[in-house]
Simulated assay, not measured.
Amino acid sequence: MVTTHQLAHASFTIYQDVKRPEFWTNYFGVEPDMQSIRGQFRTTPSGRTSKYPARIGVWSVDSKGHVQSNLLAPHLRYLVERLALPRSDLPELLKRTGAQMRFFCYWDNESGDRVPDVPDDIRTMMEAMGGTVEIDEYQ
């Protein structure tokens, strides 16, 4: 059976309410794929307005559509390069704004025999900057 969708992709997300999304856009020099401001309605990926206001501020960049691979490593390396990570001032900035950041990885494992391939150097880098790597596995 041939799949019509990728079996992996990743996003880099910052959650916080102190700085507006434009702050993170300027900081990284990258337009987000998704953003929201706490208490405001946002445009969904389908182009509609959300039914409920955002519960937290979000700034997010996704690898989907930019990387063609069923492995996580190329998606994560793309995000690292696009965002110029690591950044020495980012841990203090996260602390000052009360922000949390993560790589969120989609991993399709319907076959049950796939093992997520998060490179050790990327996991170590995220932990050193105060972030996490999370995998959402679908079976």
Rank of each mutant, 00 (worst) to 15 (best):
L7M: 04
L7T: 03
A8Y: 11
A8K: 06
A8W: 11
A10C: 11
A10E: 07
A10N: 01
S11D: 12
S11M: 03
F12Y: 15
T13I: 15
T13L: 01
T13P: 00
Y15F: 12
Q16P: 10
D17E: 08
D17Y: 01
V18D: 02
K19E: 10
K19L: 04
R20M: 12
R20S: 04
R20C: 00
R20K: 10
P21F: 07
E22T: 08
E22G: 07
T25K: 15
N26S: 15
F28Q: 08
F28K: 04
F28P: 05
G29I: 10
G29F: 02
G29H: 06
G29L: 10
V30E: 15
E31G: 09
E31S: 14
E31L: 10
P32V: 00
D33S: 13
D33P: 00
M34I: 06
M34C: 04
M34G: 12
Q35F: 11
S36E: 01
I37M: 11
I37S: 09
I37F: 03
Q40D: 09
Q40A: 10
Q40C: 07
F41V: 10
F41Y: 15
F41Q: 07
R42M: 03
T43L: 12
T44Q: 08
T44P: 01
T44N: 15
T44G: 00
P45M: 10
S46A: 15
S46V: 05
S46L: 11
G47S: 06
T49G: 05
T49N: 06
S50V: 00
K51E: 13
K51D: 10
Y52D: 08
P53S: 02
P53I: 08
P53Q: 09
A54Y: 08
I56P: 00
I56F: 06
I56M: 12
I56H: 04
G57P: 01
G57K: 08
G57Y: 03
G57F: 08
G57Q: 01
W59Q: 04
S60D: 05
S60Y: 00
V61D: 00
V61C: 06
V61F: 02
D62T: 15
D62R: 14
D62A: 12
D62C: 13
S63A: 14
S63R: 07
K64D: 11
G65K: 02
H66D: 11
H66G: 00
V67M: 07
V67A: 13
V67S: 03
Q68N: 11
Q68C: 08
S69T: 04
S69R: 11
N70Q: 02
N70F: 06
N70I: 02
L71W: 09
L71C: 13
L71A: 12
L72F: 00
L72G: 07
L72I: 02
A73T: 10
A73E: 15
A73G: 05
P74H: 05
P74N: 03
P74F: 04
H75L: 01
Y78P: 10
Y78N: 09
L79P: 03
L79H: 07
E81K: 13
E81C: 09
E81I: 03
R82F: 00
R82A: 14
L83N: 05
L83A: 05
L83G: 08
L83Y: 04
A84H: 14
A84G: 12
A84N: 15
L85F: 07
L85S: 09
L85W: 11
P86A: 05
P86G: 01
P86F: 03
R87P: 01
S88Y: 01
S88G: 09
